Computed example of a mutant assay.
Amino acid sequence: MKRTLCLASAIFISFAAGCEKNDVVIQTTSSSEPQTQSLNSFEKADYKLSFLTDQIENTTLSTSQRQKLLCIECPKTYQEEYMPAFLALQPADTSQEKLIQEMQFTLNYYQQRFDIKCT
């Protein structure tokens, strides 16, 4: 359990480090409109995922609310907003399959932690 928590934390930290790295790369290259839009989309999606994660970890949240966030809202936000924005910023550095695997790893961690089954 402790190992899983450390691994999940490492994934989120790597995303955060990647975000900072993106800012530097984008600022040092030409500031075209598509890059700015991609960065703004990514920041919005990243904020939404952080907010959802905070809600999932909220100790006052009911099991049904946590299940809805974990099984519906997080995957939807990740796949429809976060992944496209992330891939627009770094299309050669990663793949959609890799991002889906990372999402599944994180969702599985929370499902085990809170004993939630997604159907």
Rank of each mutant, 00 (worst) to 15 (best):
L52M: 11
T28Q: 15
L89E: 07
S50P: 00
S41M: 09
E73R: 09
I11E: 14
K68E: 12
Y82T: 01
C19I: 07
S50Q: 08
K68T: 11
S95G: 07
K76Q: 11
I72F: 03
S95L: 02
S62V: 03
Q27N: 12
E57F: 06
I11R: 10
L99Q: 06
M83P: 03
F12N: 09
Q37I: 15
L87W: 02
V25C: 08
D93G: 15
S32G: 07
L49R: 03
K68H: 08
L39H: 11
S50N: 14
Q67E: 12
L69F: 06
I13C: 09
D46P: 01
E57N: 14
V24C: 03
K68L: 08
K68P: 00
S30M: 10
A88P: 08
L49K: 03
A16C: 07
D93N: 14
T53S: 14
F15M: 08
I72V: 13
P75L: 00
A16P: 00
L89K: 04
K68V: 06
I72S: 10
Y78H: 05
C71L: 01
E97M: 05
T28A: 09
L61Y: 06
F12T: 08
E73S: 10
S50T: 13
Q90Y: 09
N40D: 15
E43M: 13
S41V: 02
E20D: 11
T63M: 07
P34H: 05
S9N: 10
Q27R: 12
T60W: 03
S41L: 06
T29S: 11
L70V: 10
D23E: 11
I100R: 13
F86R: 11
S62D: 08
A16S: 09
T59R: 12
I11C: 11
K21I: 09
P91Q: 04
